[in-house]
Computed example of a mutant assay.
Amino acid sequence: MFLEHFKTELINTTIVLAIFILIRFILKVSIKKLGQKTGINDARIGLISRYTTVTLFLIFILFVAYIFGAKFEDLAVIFSSVFAVIGIGLFAIWSILSNITSGIIMFFSFPYKVGDKIKIHDKDAPIEGIIEDIRAFQLHLRLDNGDLVTYPNNLILQKAVTLVQKDAIEDFGDMH
């Protein structure tokens, strides 16, 4: 009975699922190629890939709800209400969201990669070190004295950064 009643909806959902799986595959391959082409490490590639998968999943849920008869106006009210509640709840932790957003921006446009020696021009506390890792929330810099400094992604995009030494990975390897 259920299958007969929702036959068209189930067929449409299967088609949409196949399309979304194809889009996810294409995006995953594209992100991996772009990341490898620009010298981004696999952990960051995986992180951006997960972000796109979650976004696609939310879009898929929206499509499925529409297929099963939800009106666009109803979906808009539900999503706006949910996002309003989430927005209010997350406002208190905006720096985390800012760092995640900055991490995504850095994936696509940050000109430096792991192993590069950079100088962050901060008038209060300038930092010079080798990029050891670029994560979702922060950049890991290894200073010349061996100390590890974590620098928030949102701040790295707000400061001037200079490439001190290209391919400092050799120097980095000597430190360990």
Score class of each variant (00 low, 15 high):
1 M>T: 15
3 L>E: 15
5 H>S: 15
9 E>Y: 06
13 T>Y: 11
16 V>H: 05
16 V>I: 14
17 L>R: 05
17 L>Q: 08
20 F>C: 06
20 F>P: 01
20 F>A: 00
22 L>M: 09
23 I>R: 01
27 L>G: 02
31 I>V: 15
31 I>D: 03
33 K>N: 08
34 L>D: 00
35 G>N: 05
37 K>T: 00
43 A>D: 15
44 R>S: 04
45 I>Q: 11
45 I>N: 08
47 L>P: 07
49 S>V: 04
51 Y>K: 07
52 T>A: 09
52 T>D: 04
53 T>Y: 03
54 V>M: 12
54 V>H: 07
55 T>Y: 15
56 L>S: 09
58 L>Y: 06
60 F>P: 01
60 F>N: 07
62 L>I: 10
62 L>T: 14
64 V>K: 07
65 A>F: 12
66 Y>W: 13
66 Y>M: 10
67 I>V: 14
68 F>H: 13
73 E>A: 14
73 E>L: 10
74 D>T: 15
76 A>T: 13
77 V>Q: 13
80 S>F: 12
82 V>K: 01
82 V>H: 02
89 G>L: 13
89 G>W: 02
90 L>P: 02
94 W>C: 03
96 I>D: 04
99 N>P: 04
100 I>S: 07
105 I>W: 00
105 I>L: 04
107 F>S: 03
108 F>A: 03
108 F>H: 01
111 P>Q: 00
111 P>I: 00
116 D>W: 00
118 I>F: 02
119 K>S: 06
124 D>V: 04
124 D>A: 11
124 D>N: 12
126 P>E: 08
128 E>P: 08
130 I>E: 03
131 I>A: 07
131 I>Q: 06
133 D>G: 06
133 D>K: 08
133 D>Q: 05
134 I>Y: 02
135 R>Q: 12
136 A>P: 00
136 A>N: 07
138 Q>S: 14
141 L>P: 07
148 L>H: 05
150 T>I: 10
151 Y>K: 08
152 P>F: 01
153 N>A: 10
154 N>F: 01
156 I>R: 03
159 K>H: 14
159 K>L: 04
165 Q>P: 04
166 K>F: 07
173 G>L: 14
174 D>W: 07
176 H>S: 05
